[in-house]
C-alpha cells in the first residue's frame, strides 16, 4: 500500500459473471476453467475474476489488457454501470455495492465521473450543453451551469468551440468535450475507459499529455483503462495487467518492466525500450571488490535513458546513492544490457 491513510478506492474479490445463475459460478471450481470450456459447460462467461486492488488519493491507476480481458467490465463494475456478481467496492470509505439507487445517483453526480471510448456525446446538444449536462440533471440553474461549463471548457482548451455541435468537431476535440464533461462536476475520482483508442496516434499523444497536465492541475484520482502498453507506462503511477478477467500483476511501470510476473507480462513488455522506464535502482549492482568507488553520484530514481550518456562517458563505475546510503554501482555494461538486451548464455 502506497499511503498510510485509507485508499480512495478499494476493491476486494470482485466478480462479474454473465449467463444463467451467475452467482453459482463464483467461488466454484468451474470459475477457473478456461472461458470456452466454462461456456460450453454452464453457458456462463466470467468477465471479471476475483479482482482486488487499492488506489490511493491522487494516484493514476492504469488497468491494461487486451480486448476481451474484462477491463471495460471491471471499470463499469466500480461505478455499478455494470452490476458486479460478487465482491466489495469501497470508494472513499463508502460501500458502493450497498448504496441505494438514490445514493448511487448522488455519488455519480458529485463524486466520480467517467470518460468513454466512444465519447458518448449527445449529438443534438452544443458543446456547452454537453459539458453542462451533468450539472443540468443535478438541477443547477442555467446561468450557474453555463459559467461552470465555460471554466472547464477553457481548462481543456476548447474555447471558441462552445457553440459547436459535436459532429462539427474532430475526434480529438470531441474527446476534450468528454473530458470537460467529466471534469464539470468536480469529481474526486475520474474513470477513463480507453478514452483515446479511437483517435489517431498523433492526437492520442496530445491527449495523453493533456491528461498528464490535467492531473497536475486538478490532482484527481484516476482509473485509466487502456490496451496500449506505451500509454499505460506513460500515464500510470501503478499498472494492473489483466488477462481473462483476472489481474496478472499490479505494480509500478518499473516493476513490470524489470520483474514481469509471468511470461504473459514478459511478452508484453519485451519489445518496450526498458531504458525509458527503468531507473538506476533496478540496474545497480553490488560493487565487486576493489572496484573504483570514487565515481560520480546519481540518485536511484534517475531513469536509465537519462543517465546513459553520463555513465558511458564516466569511464568508471557511477555510484547510485540514496542519500548517504550506497545502493550499488552502474557501469557501461549494465547500461548496454538494458539498452541492447542482456548477454545470452
Amino acid at each position: 500500500m502506497n499511503s498510510e491513510i485509507d485508499p480512495t478506492i478499494s476493491v476486494h474479490g470482485l466478480w462479474k459473471v454473465y449467463g444463467p445463475n451467475p452467482e453459482k459460478i463464483v467461488g466454484s471450481a468451474d470459475a477457473f476453467l478456461p472461458r470456452a470450456e466454462l461456456r460450453e459447460k454452464t453457458g456462463c462467461t466470467v468477465a471479471v475474476r476475483d479482482v482486488s486492488f487499492d488506489v490511493s488519493d491522487g494516484e493514476v491507476f492504469v488497468v491494461m489488457g487486451l480486448s476481451g480481458s474484462g477491463k471495460s467490465t471491471l471499470v463499469r463494475c466500480l461505478t455499478r454501470l455494470v452490476e458486479p456478481t460478487a465482491g466489495e467496492v469501497w470508494l472513499e470509505g463508502e460501500d458502493i455495492r450497498a448504496a441505494s439507487t438514490q445514493r448511487l445517483r448522488e455519488l455519480r453526480r458529485s463524486r466520480f465521473s467517467m470518460v468513454f471510448q466512444h465519447f458518448g456525446l449527445l449529438p443534438h446538444r452544443r458543446v456547452t450543453d454537453n459539458v453542462a449536462y451533468g450539472l443540468e440533471i443535478n438541477g443547477m440553474s442555467k446561468s450557474a451551469r453555463y459559467e461552470r461549463a465555460m471554466e472547464v471548457i477553457s481548462l481543456v482548451g476548447l474555447e471558441g468551440n462552445e457553440n459547436n455541435y459535436p459532429s462539427e468537431l474532430s475526434g480529438g476535440m470531441q474527446q476534450r468535450v468528454g473530458l470537460a464533461r467529466a471534469l464539470a462536476s468536480d469529481p474526486d475520482v475520474m474513470f477513463f475507459d480507453e478514452p483515446f483508442s479511437a483517435l489517431d496516434p498523433l492526437i492520442r499523444r496530445d491527449m495523453q499529455q493533456e491528461v498528464i497536465r490535467l492531473h497536475h492541475e486538478v490532482k484527481k484520482t484516476m482509473v485509466f483503462i487502456t490496451h496500449d502498453l506505451a500509454e499505460a507506462l506513460k500515464l500510470g503511477d501503478r499498472i494492473a495487467i489483466m488477462r481473462d478477467g483476472a489481474l496478472v500483476q499490479v505494480g509500478t511501470p518499473e516493476e513490470l518492466v524489470a520483474t514481469p510476473a509471468d511470461d504473459y507480462v514478459a511478452n508484453f513488455v519485451r519489445d518496450f525500450p526498458k531504458s525509458h522506464i527503468l531507473t538506476l535502482r533496478w540496474i545497480a549492482r553490488d560493487p565487486t571488490s576493489g572496484e573504483d568507488l570514487g565515481g560520480p553520484i546519481l540518485a536511484p530514481t534517475v531513469i536509465v535513458r537519462d543517465a546513459a550518456r553520463q555513465i558511458l562517458e564516466a569511464g568508471r563505475p557511477v555510484r547510485v546513492m540514496d542519500g548517504e546510503r550506497l545502493l550499488g554501482v552502474v557501469t557501461a555494461d549494465e547500461i548496454l544490457s538494458v539498452i541492447a538486451g542482456p548477454h545470452h548464455g
Binding site: L81, R108, R109, F116, Y133, G134, I137
Partner: peptide
C-alpha cells in the same frame, strides 16, 4: 447509441432523465 445513454447514467441521470 448506448454510449450516450451510458454516459448519461454515469453522470447520475435518472432513467426518466
Amino acid at each position: 447509441p448506448w454510449s450516450t445513454v451510458e454516459a448519461s447514467i454515469s453522470m447520475g441521470s435518472t432513467r426518466w432523465q
